[in-house]
Amino acid sequence: MSKRHPIIAVTGSSGAGTSTTGQIFARLFAREGINAAMVSGDSFHRYTREQMARLAAKGQFGERNHFALAANHIDRLEALMYDYSHTGNGRCRQYVHDEDHDLIAAGHKPGTFTPWSSLPADTDVLFYEGLHGGVVSENFNLVQYVDLLIGVVPIVNLEWIQKINRDTNKRGYSPEAVVETIINRMDDYVKDIVPQFSHTHINFQRVPLVDTSNPFIARDVPSEDESMIVIHFREVTDVDFSWLLQAIPQSRLSRHDTLVIPGTKMPLAMDLIVRPMVQRLMAGKAFA
């Protein structure tokens, strides 16, 4: 951790909503006038899309799947966090998604990576969103560098429904292929993803209020109106629950450290909860 060069990380599995949370943070940074270095976890995958497909065709599955630490450059991610916390810089790259039209226009092929390069100079904070922002393992400890770690964790049936819906409607995969992917990476989900949520400062967990008993036949993602958000705080000393209960309509406490809000209030709650924390990080940076 570094007062002078703070790091914020949002961690969660594929389809959990980390990208949407990243957009909320981007708007927060813009309103606060914070110049953030935005880093995606996809950038640290070890294999291109074609390499993963070739390995899968051979039954090797590229160190199993992207959930697995071995399928990612966790060493480079830790090096980035170490370098940024000490110098305010570091090296990263970008994964080229199908919708990254500017990168594609510049000659980069979807499913590949841009070259490794230095982050922009003179940023105020490093922001990471992806699969592995809270990794602590035998070989790695990313948590030691992260000043604010947030988990985005739908209950698992909802997470699967969201992934099936996204990958079939937006990425062109068959429902059977997506279900097979979910099953194949379950061991790595349990071993490499779930433990991170014990290290987070705050977890935002979306809980549906409709039947998701069989996520493999569901075709509609429960809407925000059909969901609640369970927000758990690791430390409650600096949390003004009385104010949050007044500021967020229909909110309540389920435990002394857990706030429950309507699904439609997620952006509001994240702003009210996270903005003061970000402001404190920036204030500490100013006096470092």
Results as ranks from 00 to 15, higher is better:
residue 176 E to C: 08
residue 1 M to V: 11
residue 252 R to F: 05
residue 141 N to C: 09
residue 226 E to H: 09
residue 114 T to H: 03
residue 39 V to D: 00
residue 180 E to V: 03
residue 43 S to H: 09
residue 258 T to G: 02
residue 47 Y to R: 06
residue 185 R to T: 06
residue 287 F to E: 15
residue 267 P to M: 07
residue 271 D to Y: 03
residue 274 V to G: 07
residue 212 T to D: 13
residue 163 K to L: 15
residue 58 K to N: 08
residue 12 G to R: 03
residue 221 V to A: 02
residue 230 V to F: 06
residue 17 G to F: 05
residue 164 I to S: 02
residue 146 V to K: 04
residue 233 F to V: 10
residue 186 M to R: 12
residue 186 M to Y: 13
residue 123 T to V: 08
residue 24 I to Q: 11
residue 191 K to A: 14
residue 279 Q to A: 04
residue 279 Q to Y: 00
residue 32 E to A: 08
residue 187 D to I: 09
residue 24 I to E: 10
residue 14 S to Y: 10
residue 94 Q to K: 14
residue 155 I to V: 15
residue 151 G to F: 06
residue 136 V to N: 01
residue 268 L to Y: 03
residue 280 R to H: 15
residue 255 R to G: 06
residue 85 S to G: 13
residue 155 I to Y: 09
residue 17 G to A: 02
residue 277 M to H: 11
residue 181 T to I: 11
residue 163 K to A: 13
residue 39 V to H: 00
residue 154 P to K: 01
residue 40 S to T: 12
residue 188 D to N: 07
residue 135 V to N: 01
residue 131 L to Q: 02
residue 199 H to F: 14
residue 216 F to M: 12
residue 4 R to Q: 15
residue 246 Q to S: 15
residue 274 V to E: 06
residue 273 I to L: 00
residue 55 L to P: 01
residue 259 L to C: 04
residue 155 I to C: 13
residue 36 A to I: 04
residue 165 N to H: 15
residue 28 L to N: 06
residue 91 R to A: 14
residue 57 A to L: 14
residue 25 F to W: 04
residue 160 W to P: 13
residue 280 R to K: 15
residue 95 Y to I: 13
residue 244 L to Y: 12
residue 1 M to D: 09
residue 47 Y to D: 07
residue 35 N to A: 10
residue 43 S to M: 06
residue 247 A to N: 11
residue 17 G to C: 09
residue 197 F to W: 00
residue 8 I to L: 07
residue 192 D to F: 10
residue 68 A to L: 00
residue 88 G to C: 08
residue 245 L to Y: 07
residue 151 G to E: 01
residue 116 W to D: 14
residue 234 R to C: 04
residue 284 G to P: 08
residue 19 S to L: 09
residue 78 E to Q: 15
residue 72 N to K: 00
residue 120 P to E: 01
